[in-house]
Structure formats: structure tokens, C-alpha cells
Amino acid sequence: MSFGPFLLLALMEGLVTAAVLALAASGLSLVFGVMRVVNVAHGEFYMLGAVIAWFVTTLVPGPAWAGFLVALAVAPVAVGALAAAADRLVLRRLDYDPEATIVATIGLLYMIQQAALSFYGPDARPVAAPFDWRLQLPWFGYSGYKLFVVLAAAVVLLALWLFMTRSKVGLVMRATQVDRDVAQAFGIDVDLVYMAVFGIGAALAAVAAVLIVPIQQAHYLMGHDPLLLSFIVVIIGGLGSLRGTVVAALVIGLSDGVISMFFSPTLAKILATLLVALVLVFRPQGLFGVRDR
């Protein structure tokens, strides 16, 4: 295969990575943007979404697409509910203190991880793709499911953007993001907003995991890479900026696809981390972040 088709394949793979990354990172970015909480357990919510998807697809009888659709509905709700409970029981009691919440979410990370190890086990387990269609190009065949992942992620991100910019709840969240005290002075129940935001952020990670699990398999340690890459994406894009998150996910995902294919995945990670360092030095607020709010 000549260079052109190789590059096309690399870009398509990168696009899948970017789509899933954008979803997972948008959850992390939303939580930090509104609550100023650095959620170190975000990767474990991702892992939990994949594990729940495995359980659901195993339990639901019938064709693979039926189980997948149930998983796509159940996993984000379950993970979102768990995150909301964690907010209510842990983060609120810490009054969302930035340092204390980092330590608390590290604790949450290990609790979720070890719970998954206990109840799910150490094995990586596959989840069947909901359909088995291939796009046949002149140079190579490509998984139709991977294209579906890109499309589905784009739809969810569009829905998130509409929710944040067009709905009353989104408006309330944006106001709370700007000034918590003044939001309360206009009757906004900030505790409720925070609980919802933490739940939605985790649910977005779970959606990303359900989409990717037919490609990558579910494993109790699978949350590490998405957490690292999500942090890279939100730092580059600007913490709290949905637009920046999507753009940075595209940059990281596409470059990861190309560099991994032509050089090595390790080099892709090294360059992404280097990019984070450069952003932190020359534009600490990220490409689309705001320095002073």
C-alpha cells in the first residue's frame, strides 16, 4: 500500500481516537469548568462504563445490537448516578476544596478500580460490535462500526453543546461556572448544579467507553490512558472550554493516529506530553481558555 492510503488509514484511526477522547475529555472539562474540581477518578468512570457495557451485553438476550443499545442507555445512567452519589457523599462534604477533592477523587479512583477487580475480575473481555459492516475502499476495508463511533460521538457532543448553550439548565450551569456566590443570590441551588454536573461528566466518560469497548475490550485497568489523554486534551484546549476540548481532541487524536502508524505509539504519547508542557509554559490557560474570569 502506498503512502496516501496509509495516511488515510492513519487519519481514520486517529479520528476514532479523537472522537472518543473528545467525549471523555468533555466530561472532565465540564466538571473542572463548573466545579473547579480536578476529577482524578474520571478514567475509572470510563472503565466502569465499559465494564457495565460488558455485563449488560452479556445479560441481554437477542442480537448484539439490542444489548449494545441497552448498554448505551444503562451504563451512562448508572455511572452518572454513582458519580452524583460520590459528589453528594464526599465532594460536598469537602466544600469542593480544590486540594481536598483531588485527594478524595484519588481515593475514589482506587475504590472503583478495586471494586471492578473484585466483581469483574482481572481479565479483558470483549463486547460484540452491534453490527458487522465494512466500508470497502479501493485500498483497504474499514470497520463501519468505527465510523459509527465517530458519528455517535459527534451527535453526543452536538447535543451537549446545544444543552449547554440553548437550555435553561445549561444556562444555570454556565452562570454557576462564572460566579458561584452570585448564582446563589439569584436562587440557583449550586449544590444541585454541582451534583448534576459531576454526574453528567461521568456519564460522558461512560458513553465514550461503551462506544469504544467493542474495539478495545473491557478491563479493570483501562481507565489510565483515557485519564491521561483527557488531561492532555483539556489542558491544551483550555480547562472548561468545550470548543477547546473538541479541537484539542482532534489534534491529539489525529496526530496519535498518524504518528502511531508511521513511527510508534510511544512517540505519539511523548509528543502529546511535550505539547502540554509547551502550552503550560507559553499559554497556561490553554488554546481556548480564559485567563481571568
Binding site: 452562570a175 448564582a183 439569584f186 436562587g187 440557583i188
Partner: peptide, 9 residues
Amino acid sequence: ENLEIGGLL
């Protein structure tokens, strides 16, 4: 939007 937040209640 600022006015809308003001009038929520």
C-alpha cells in the same frame, strides 16, 4: 442571558 438568570425565580 444575565437578565434570564435574574428572573429565574
